[in-house]
Computed example of a mutant assay.
Amino acid sequence: MFETEKMAEMIDTYLIPWGINIAFALIIFIVGRIVVSVIVNLLGKVMARSKYDTMLVSFIKSIIKALLMLFVIIASLDQLGVDTTSLVAIFGAAGLAIGLSMKDSLQNFAAGVLLLVFRPFKAGDYVEAGGTAGSVKHIGIFTTMFTTPDNKMVIVPNGNIYGDNIVNYSAMDTRRVDMVVGISYDSDLRKAKEILKEMLEADERILKDPAPQVAVSELADSSVNFVVRPWVKTADYWALKFDFTEAVKLRFDQEGIGIPFPQMDVHLHKEESEA
């Protein structure tokens, strides 16, 4: 009889309260996990509609899910009577230590997130950033890969890119080609200018609006320099620059207009020797 009463007392004192706490902790964990999944999936759909990078969406979803699940676990442990204050302090200290030891990596990570969110460039653009220039191959969380014109792969930390000027040559649909053409001082200036205008009008790649510009820019040491500034589609920039430079030389040769090269005149003075 005594043992039965003692067993009943233990059940009432320990087993039932602990069983209730465990049941509530499991309910909190299960329901919390379901709620976290719903929130993360909803966030992913919203970010996908905003056309954010797939890698960024996946990474942010993982971070938010981990943080929310941490709160769910802490709430479940608190229901079991575990002192969560000390647990939170331990997590905070561990996070601070990890953050200090990975300062550079966190800087690159933050810069990578900003690059993926604000999109100063995208894959395929030709940019100058982080001390290098090339076509963007891949934008990662910590680094960005470039392909140089001579087909070398360059991997640049995102912190270096976002902490410096970024020049995106592919961002605009059109670009202005800046060229300098020099003629000799004894050549016909007006004729050379008309030839340059005629060549610009004949090339179909050159846009009519904005209108191309031809003007005398400098009376240099050995040449009269023209600035030639046509507007083209960005994809035609280099082809037009190379083709037009070659065409100018061939046309000027045909028209008898000289293109000077650097030279120096040396004058010798002969002195009469004394008798």
Rank of each mutant, 00 (worst) to 15 (best):
F2D: 04
F2A: 09
F2Q: 07
E9A: 15
T13A: 14
T13F: 10
Y14G: 09
P17Y: 04
I20V: 09
I22E: 04
I27A: 09
I28L: 03
I28G: 00
I30E: 01
G32A: 08
I34N: 01
V35P: 04
V36E: 05
V38P: 07
V38G: 12
V40M: 06
L42N: 13
K45M: 12
V46R: 07
M47D: 14
S50N: 08
K51P: 01
D53E: 14
D53V: 07
T54D: 15
M69P: 11
M69T: 07
I74N: 01
I74R: 00
A75C: 11
A75N: 03
S76N: 07
L77V: 03
Q79G: 01
L80A: 07
V82A: 05
D83K: 12
T85L: 12
A89L: 14
I90N: 06
F91G: 06
G92P: 11
A93D: 05
A94N: 01
G95S: 14
I98A: 08
L100Q: 02
S101I: 10
K103N: 09
S105Y: 07
L106K: 06
N108I: 08
N108H: 06
N108S: 14
N108T: 05
A110P: 06
V113H: 02
L114W: 04
V117S: 00
P120D: 03
F121Q: 03
F121E: 06
A123M: 15
A123R: 14
G124S: 07
D125Q: 04
D125M: 03
T132A: 15
A133W: 02
K137F: 12
H138Y: 14
I139L: 12
T143Y: 13
M145H: 13
T147L: 15
T148C: 01
T148K: 02
N151K: 11
M153V: 12
I155R: 14
G159M: 11
N160Y: 02
I161F: 05
G163S: 12
G163P: 01
G163F: 02
D164T: 06
N165S: 10
I166A: 01
S170C: 03
M172T: 11
D173V: 09
D173C: 08
T174H: 02
R175L: 08
R176H: 02
I183R: 01
I183K: 04
D186V: 01
D188C: 01
D188N: 11
R190A: 09
R190S: 08
E194I: 01
I195Q: 01
L196K: 02
M199K: 12
E201M: 08
L207V: 15
K208N: 15
K208P: 00
D209K: 10
D209Y: 06
D209M: 10
P210W: 06
A211H: 13
A211K: 15
Q213L: 13
V214R: 07
V216G: 08
S217A: 10
E218H: 05
E218I: 06
L219C: 04
D221H: 07
D221W: 05
S223N: 10
V224I: 13
N225Y: 00
V227F: 00
V227Y: 00
P230G: 07
A235S: 10
W238Y: 03
K241H: 05
T245N: 15
E246A: 13
A247C: 08
A247E: 12
V248T: 15
G256V: 04
I257K: 04
F261D: 10
M264G: 06
V266Y: 09
L268C: 13
H269I: 14
H269V: 15
K270Y: 13
E272H: 08
E274R: 12
A275E: 10
